[in-house]
Write a protein that binds this DNA or RNA. Sequence first.
DNA 1: ATTACTAGGGCTCGAGTAA
DNA 2: TTTACTCGAGCCCTAGTAA
Lengths: 232, 232
Amino acid sequence: MPENSLDKLSRGERNRIYDGLKAILSLSNGEKRARLYSGSLALFMGISQQSASKLILDMNRTGVIIRHMDGKIQSIEVSELGRDLLFEEYSLLSGLLGVKDKIMISGVVQSGMGEGRYYVSRKPYVIQFQERLGFIPYMGTLNIKVDSSEEVSLRRIRGYSGIKIDGFATDDRTFGPVKAFMGTISGIKCAIIFPERSVYRDVIEIISEEFLREKLKLSDGEKVQLNVDVSN
Amino acid sequence: MPENSLDKLSRGERNRIYDGLKAILSLSNGEKRARLYSGSLALFMGISQQSASKLILDMNRTGVIIRHMDGKIQSIEVSELGRDLLFEEYSLLSGLLGVKDKIMISGVVQSGMGEGRYYVSRKPYVIQFQERLGFIPYMGTLNIKVDSSEEVSLRRIRGYSGIKIDGFATDDRTFGPVKAFMGTISGIKCAIIFPERSVYRDVIEIISEEFLREKLKLSDGEKVQLNVDVSN
DNA sequence: ATTACTAGGGCTCGAGTAA
DNA sequence: TTTACTCGAGCCCTAGTAA
């Protein structure tokens, strides 16, 4: 069972796993899964079969890959956690190297279940939205289902640390930390918000000072484009 | 004296240096040089001062940083070699993660000294251009001085491995390996060529089946835009 | 203050080898 | 065949400390 204990890993250990992930992606040839022997991985990485075997075990233990043993040959798939790790690294490098990242996301308007409204109207969130995003959002979210062709763009955004909105707890429950990215939709200032620790979803939630759905006269299924600023 | 012996480093050693470079860039705050104590670097990286000191020495030895000792405090600058290393990593990740890279470069036409013509007309090069790029280039290069605002884009391109053109030797001298990237300029197919091992230059050389300068009626100082395909 | 050398401990890696 | 365990060697990291 994965422990998601990536934070606790030593620098060396983390880099080892990081190299392993890159190697597995290289050997996947665009497929979702890579069918390989520990020996093939070893050859590719220039390490011994024993080390590659241990590396695969470690990667599986930390949950960055999902392994299926089909008899002798194993098929390995980079997990969501593993992908996130690599996209985080990518986004970090983007920032450090000064790559201008104007990421655009397009998708279609979707109706939410109203949970968005509930969350974004919690006072501790609202206070932070005002302080860190510079506006008090309309009490509701605009949900956008991102085009599947833009999955990579969305993952790239998620890879950035964004603007931190702290979590908090009430008597009954806890509200997790959130990260936000400023952007514009049809010229109107807005922000995308993500739960800090979440699995990849193709639906994103947008907040804005305006009631976007009304202001932009949007109805379900309508196509919209979003400009996202990831420079922090 | 730098040994440029990066290839000979072990995986662990290379990752250590890689982490050090990222840390130094993080601590530079956008400045060219970072003024820091080995202790500050240590704190930032979560390692001991001694390890940070050794890391700095190693990075200096391999030539990925340039160090100036101003008394006690040192100022550290990531060298061209170091930058190349990071951009290579960035480009590698781009490819592995499937980030669509349509890189555009703009600059102004410049007259070369005619050396471009000499190089690209050497037969072993020409044969490879035909085989690997799919065309026999016009015997000359179009030189473009890239806008300084697009330095990062150019470095990103250089970070990719591109299409390999092997070097060769004649009786008198050797011609180094070259890497090429397909692209278009005003809709006409072309390729950028770089010496495989070179320092960063803001002038790039374009080859094409056509005599671009004439076909596009270009004169010195004229602004042009280039679309580069880095997907290999 | 700093930087950085030297020793010792821990950890990673690979050879041998079992299953 | 393959995967993966054990254990010894070597390497890297840190503490102590000199300059």
